[in-house]
Design a protein around this nucleic acid. Structure first.
Lengths: 158, 158
DNA sequence: AGAGAACGATTTTGACTTGTAACGATACCT
DNA sequence: AGGTATCGTTACAAGTCAAAATCGTTCTCT
């Protein structure tokens, strides 16, 4: 979905800059993890499972704000690669508890390294103080706007 | 495309915050202009045409980084609503020079108002000084990353 | 205990978006 | 003039996504 330029006001507003730079950063990150054979949604799911292991698919879906039917294919892809396991809950055999395998953990570490490098690249124009300032301002906005920390709102619809 | 959380590092990096907040801002802006019956790509195109009137479709496509075939449907939609005109160039009858109509200009003004309100909403957590600081930092990043001012990089691929 | 409602996961379906490739018209070059 | 390149358009195919139907399991009520 290309091109959502700023309304005519000649000095670009902060919100527009935010979406432009944010989209750029998302694209660059997607390129990086593509080298690992992962898509951004897969990466997000993997991380979500690692953050809260043992949850049912429905619980994860609600947490991420994605329809449960979408999770199936996503989990399938991760499970086929041995990064994630569906464990049948003996108490309630309807639910599939999601867990990250050892392989998945290893990959998460590589993702973390990638994320760090990504961060450095994006913020190359800023010194340490400026980066801290930027982080602080963004945290303020994120909090006020009701964004769940660690969760990335979907590209279309929230 | 939901959920591209941060790699495990517990303090969220600036780049991740950037994509999260940026995506959120893009979604909110999309909601606003939906009230005008416009999609974000349409809005971007309208603004691009207003910024550089008389260009050929191919020139606009290259400027926005979108495939020319995609522009056709986009221009069609705008032309059907009387916001944009295709003018046959008498010198070279292959190209269609794109121009914004008076109606289009009027709508652009409403979009600008919407953009201002949007900006205020997104930055509600920040005072004037903080907003200026944020803008300055983002401009630094955008410049270093080679982003064309006023153009919003596409959601997928640049 | 048994019938039916409720729930979780999955499959199916359809709409939508987007990029690639072929097509026709026009213009440039020799 | 004729061959080639360019512009816009159309046609086609692939991929993404969400809403609805389906299947198995569990809970509840009598």
């Amino acid at each position: 979905m290309p091109a959502c330029p700023e309304p005519p006001g000649h000095p670009p507003g902060a919100a527009f800059l935010l979406t432009a730079v944010g989209t750029h950063a998302a694209n660059r990150f997607a390129e990086r993890i593509a080298g690992l054979g992962l898509t951004p949604p897969q990466t997000g799911l993997l991380r979500a499972i690692a953050a809260a292991p043992g949850l049912s698919q429905q619980a994860v879906a609600q947490f991420l704000g994605t329809p449960p039917s979408r999770l199936v294919a996503l989990v399938d892809a991760l499970a086929d690669r041995g990064l994630v396991e569906r464990r049948r809950n003996p108490g309630d055999r309807r639910l599939h508890a999601l867990h990250v395998t050892a392989e998945g953990e290893a990959l998460l570490q590589r993702i973390a390294q990638l994320g760090q490098a990504h961060d450095d690249t994006i913020c190359a124009a800023l010194d340490d103080d400026q980066r801290a300032t930027l982080r602080a301002l963004l945290v303020l906005i994120a909090g006020e706007q009701g964004l769940t920390p660690g969760v990335h709102p979907g590209y279309r619809f929230v």
